[in-house]
Amino acid sequence: MEEPDPRLRLLLAAADPGLLDGTVRAARARSTQVGELPEAEVRRHVRALVEGVVASLATGGEPDPAVLEAAGRLGSDRARQGVPVAALLDGFQAGREYLLRRLIGEGRRRGVSDGVLLDGLTTIDGMTTALVHRMVHAHRTAELEMAQTTRESHAQLLRRLLHGEPTPRPAPLEPATAYHFVVSDVSDPAVASRLEGPLTEAGRGLAALVDGRMVALVARLPDLPADAPLMVAAPPRRPAEVAPLYSLARRALAAGAHAGLRGLRHLGDLALLTAADGEPELGRLLAGSLLGALDPDDPFHRELAETALAYLDHGSRIDPAAAALHVHGNTVKYRLRRLRDLTGGPPATASVADTAHWWWALRTWLSISSR
C-alpha cells in the first residue's frame, strides 16, 4: 500500500483543539455512561488515542505500542468506573466516525486525492480494530479481577461471621438486619457460581465458598426447583448471631444427604433426622429392641420395613404411603399387619415418642440391612 501522505497526519494532529473537542463531544453524546463521566476524564483518553493514531500514520499504520497501551488503559479504567463494554464501544465508535468525517472533509478541502484518502481510511480502520481488541480484552480482564476481588472479600466476610470472629462492620450486610443462613455441600466453583444468582436475587445477601462448600446469608429465601442440590436454611438471624447455626446446619446437611434429600430444606424440618443421624448407637439399640424379629436377609421383611417407614413418613396415612411406594392401599395395610404380627408395631395409635422410636428403628434397620 502507498505510504500515507504526510498531510493526513497534519489533518489529525492532536494539537488541533477543534479535532480533540469534537471527538470528545461525539463520544460523550453517543454513550450515556461515557457522557456521565467527567469531561476531563474522557478528554484524557481521547487525547492519548488520537495522538497514537497520528503517530502510527507515520509508520504506515502499524499501531504503536504506546497507543495499544493507551487503549488498554481506557478499557481497564472504564471497567473500574462501571462503564459496560457496550457503552465503551459506543463512545469509541462515535469518536472514530468523527475522526473519519473530519479526515475526509479536510482532505478534500485541501485537495488530497481520493486514493490517498482511501489509503488513510483503510490504515485508520485497521488501527482502530486493533485498538478495539485491546480495549475489550483489558475491560474483560479488569472485570474478572474485580469480580474475583469482590468474591474473595465476600468469602472472607462470611468465613469470619460463621467462625464467630469479631466483624463490627459486615458491609455490604446490614448489622441489624436478620438473614437466613444457607449451607450446601456444593464445592464445584462453577456450580456455586450458577447458584449464587438464584440465592441472592430474592433480596440482599452474599454467597460464597467457605470451608470448601457453598454458603450464603440472604434476606429472603429463594424458590428453588425440587431437584436442586440439597441446601439447609436456618431461621433468620443478624450477622453477628449466625456462628452457632453453622455447625448445626452442617449436621443437618449431612443427615439430609444420608437420607437422599434434595432442594432447599428448613433446618427445623430436619430436627429429628439430624438428631437420629447424630446418635447411631441409639438407633441400633432401638432397631435391635423393636425389630429383632426381622431377618435382614429376607427381602419380604425389608419390604415390610420400607412400607412401615413410608407410612410413618406420610403422617400414618395409608393412601399417601401407597402413592409413594407405587402400590395399592390394601398392600400397605397387609404389610403393616404382617409387620405387627412379627414385631408388635408400629401401633395404629401411638404416642409421639413411640412413633419417633419406631421411625428411628426402621430407618436404622434399613440402613444396616442394605450393607
Rank of each mutant, 00 (worst) to 15 (best):
L68P: 07
A233E: 08
R96S: 14
V183T: 14
A27W: 00
E39R: 15
H139I: 03
A240P: 08
L224R: 09
A86C: 05
R73A: 14
I318E: 10
G315S: 12
L99Y: 04
S31V: 08
H154F: 10
A178R: 11
E143Y: 00
A58I: 04
G61D: 11
P6N: 05
R25D: 15
L270D: 04
G82L: 03
A71L: 00
D341H: 11
D313Q: 12
L121V: 15
R262Y: 04
A243G: 13
W359K: 11
G212T: 08
A178F: 03
A216D: 02
E2A: 15
R134F: 05
H139S: 09
H266M: 04
S113P: 13
R335L: 06
T150Y: 00
P229K: 05
L11S: 07
D119N: 13
T177R: 13
A147L: 10
M135R: 09
D313S: 08
S184H: 02
V183W: 02
T123A: 01
H301Y: 07
T141N: 10
Y98E: 15
S369V: 01
L264R: 04
R237K: 13
T123P: 01
T129N: 09
R204P: 11
S316D: 12
A176T: 13
R140Y: 12
R108T: 14
R250Y: 05
V42C: 10
D211Y: 03
S31P: 07
P239Q: 00
P84R: 08
A348L: 14
H139L: 02
N330E: 12
L11P: 03
M1D: 15
G105Q: 11
A29M: 10
A226T: 15
E3G: 12
K333S: 14
A79L: 04
A71F: 01
A356I: 01
A361K: 06
G292W: 01
L99H: 08
L161I: 06
P168C: 07
L286F: 02
G22W: 03
P189I: 09
A322E: 05
A252N: 01
H137M: 09
G111K: 09
E152P: 00
G263W: 01
R110S: 13
D227Q: 10
P235W: 00
D125G: 11
A15S: 14
E41Q: 12
R151N: 14
G22H: 02
T307G: 04
A171Q: 13
P166Q: 08
L161G: 06
M214V: 07
P65F: 08
